[in-house]
Simulated assay, not measured.
Amino acid sequence: MSFRIRKYAAIDIGSNAIRLLVASVTLFDEEPPVFKKISLVRVPIRLGQDVFTTKEIGEVNMNRMVKSMESYALLMDVHKVEKYKAYATSAMREAQNGEEVARLIKKKTGINIEIIDGSHEAAIIAMTDLHSMIHDNKVYLYVDVGGGSTEFTLFADGEAKASRSFKIGTVRLLNDMVTKKLWSEAEVWIKEICQPYAKVELLGSGGNINNIYKSSEKSTGKPLSYLYLSSYYEKLQSYTYEERVYYLNLNQDRADVIIPACRIYLSAMKWSRAKNIYVPKIGLADGIIKSIYNADKR
């Protein structure tokens, strides 16, 4: 009988926040591995606000990043993490000083950050439990909304048929940095890839849709309807920022981006003619853990 528990960590450096996920993988004889989340820490550092407006990460956020990574290095140490990966997406990808910041963090904390593109990001997310939710006889449009970009993937016959990343993100929308032309491009592309199929379901991921799903009190696995999401969107808009924090119990850094996030999901549902959106609790960090495990078992 063989039994082993391995510990891995994933650091996801997004445009709206930086997350550390520590997970264990239990290996028992010839049974499939069991993945379990042990700890998830989220620090609300909005790198996108800097990058999308000034083209670089400012000194204040740079110092906050260093402190966050120092704390993440300590947490990984006390959790006895064997291996980790730190991936940065849209904001650091576009920052003129992105590589410079990555070098500084490596020097100060020992954490090595890899800056990845949208297609690499989509491929990592595809390593998650997403496939267990995709049925061969159904068609899905997977929509992952971030602060700087949104990744779309169409699944049909149990496999990915088309994938694309658009620079339509919540932080960009807050700063009025998404052109009508870009919205039109996304609309045309989604309508085009969904056109051959009579029925498409949406799969939504990202902190905002997870928050909306949690507040809906739907039982696990049940979808949100277009009507529900649309009415929730109207409700959000009827409140001031302060009211959203107080009455809806939203985090300060969530209470503003949740509105543009809703707009992206509703647009995707409208263009794909989807009546429902399913919300699997997965994201980039989950995919990173799977990718470390897959590389390890080779």
Rank of each mutant, 00 (worst) to 15 (best):
K297A: 11
G146C: 05
S205T: 15
A255L: 14
G206N: 13
R164K: 15
N61P: 06
E114T: 01
G147T: 06
V145R: 04
A156L: 03
V41D: 06
Y293V: 08
I13V: 15
K191P: 05
V145Q: 11
D176G: 11
S216P: 12
F152D: 06
N16M: 01
Y84S: 08
K108M: 11
N294V: 04
D136G: 09
I288K: 09
K161A: 10
Y72H: 02
A285E: 08
I209D: 09
K7E: 01
E121V: 10
I282Q: 07
Y87M: 07
L27Y: 01
T109P: 03
V78F: 11
K214L: 11
E100R: 14
P196M: 03
Y265W: 02
E114M: 04
G58K: 02
D77T: 10
N112G: 05
I209K: 04
S15H: 09
R46F: 06
K281C: 01
N211D: 09
G158F: 03
R4W: 00
I113N: 08
I288C: 11
S90A: 12
E70A: 03
V171Q: 02
F152L: 11
I13Q: 00
N112R: 14
K199A: 03
V171S: 10
K108H: 00
N137Q: 10
W189P: 03
G48A: 14
I288V: 15
